[in-house]
């Protein structure tokens, strides 16, 4: 199947009720109803969208298997009466056997789980304590959807340039980034973390000639205000849409895959990386201490 060029996305900057997935699914249904006239084909939700981010030991009580997640969201899809398929990217706490992960799924509702990414970089510093409660994912990979090849990176995953480089080399044309980012640093026009997200998203999109779609949680969790500021950046590094801070909103953006080849032709950094990275692998091995150290 040849993937279509224009794909309509709704980036849903969501404010969950803490630890109440049932209420949050009901509210998600209301938001989908409101979005339906705008005919999105992919809806992108933030990290930990169904429960809130800071759960501490509550992760164990609220984590879902990927199949339970599919079942719950397919039920919402049905209750809303959505006609046809709807792709959803959603962050959730995942349970698999005895282990728990901070994951994000790409679902094709109502039928299938297309991919699940498990967060590799678990922030455990300052206000964050993920590694105390969660196991680390071990893979970054692109995957095929009915709209083309994409990848998911969760929050801090995206703050390390190596992950988006892997996703781009693996063929991703869109990187979805579900995030939860407590606002901090109030000296400037926007909170420091929000500035950082904008800078990073633009740099990554321009470096690899792909789309970056950030869906960022909002709402206060015990005094920590999730900042929002979800955004979409085009393959030339241009900010295409940006949500307000601190409040629920949805961005409707048509992602045009046809824009990628001309941008990559003008700025062939990705093919340069593909060619030169093997030359650098011995140095990567060396600095990781695997040989000659």
């Amino acid at each position: 199947m040849v993937a279509r060029s224009l794909v309509r996305h709704a980036i849903l900057q969501f404010r969950p009720e803490k630890a109440r997935p049932k209420e949050n699914l009901a509210r998600l249904g209301e938001h989908l109803q409101a979005l339906r006239p705008h005919t999105p084909e992919v809806v992108v939700l933030p990290e930990a969208a169904l429960t809130g981010y800071f759960l501490q030991g509550g992760v164990r009580e609220l984590a879902l298997t990927r199949h339970e997640l599919l079942e719950l969201l397919s039920q919402v899809h049905k209750e809303v009466g959505w006609e046809g398929l709807l792709d959803v990217v959603v962050g959730f706490y995942e349970r698999d056997e005895g282990a728990y992960y901070n994951s994000a799924a790409y679902l094709e509702l109502p039928h299938r789980v297309v991919h699940v990414h498990r967060k590799v970089f678990l922030p455990t510093y300052g206000v964050f304590d993920e590694e105390r409660y969660l196991a680390r994912g071990r893979r970054v990979e692109a995957f095929n959807t009915r709209f083309g090849r994409v990848a998911i990176l969760i929050c801090e995953d995206f703050w390390h340039s190596i992950t988006s480089a892997i996703a781009a080399l693996d063929g991703a044309e869109v990187i979805y980034v579900p995030a939860a980012s407590p606002a901090r640093g109030f000296q400037g026009e926007r909170p420091e973390n929000v500035e950082r997200w904008r800078t990073l998203a633009r740099a990554v999109a321009a470096e690899h000639g792909l789309y970056v779609v950030l869906s960022s949680l909002v709402g206060f969790e015990g005094g920590k205000g999730m900042s929002g500021g979800s955004l979409v950046v085009g393959p030339e590094g241009r900010l295409l849409a940006e949500a307000p801070l601190f409040e629920e909103a949805a961005l409707i953006v048509d992602l045009d895959r046809e824009r990628i080849p001309p941008v990559r032709y003008d700025s062939p950094l990705l093919s340069d990386l593909e060619a030169a990275l093997p030359l650098l692998l011995p140095d990567l091995e060396r600095v990781l201490g695997r040989e000659g150290r």
Partner: peptide, 10 residues
């Protein structure tokens, strides 16, 4: 050991 955030209310 038993850690729950203050706004945890499932």
């Amino acid at each position: 050991f038993y850690l729950r955030p203050l706004d945890y209310r499932p």
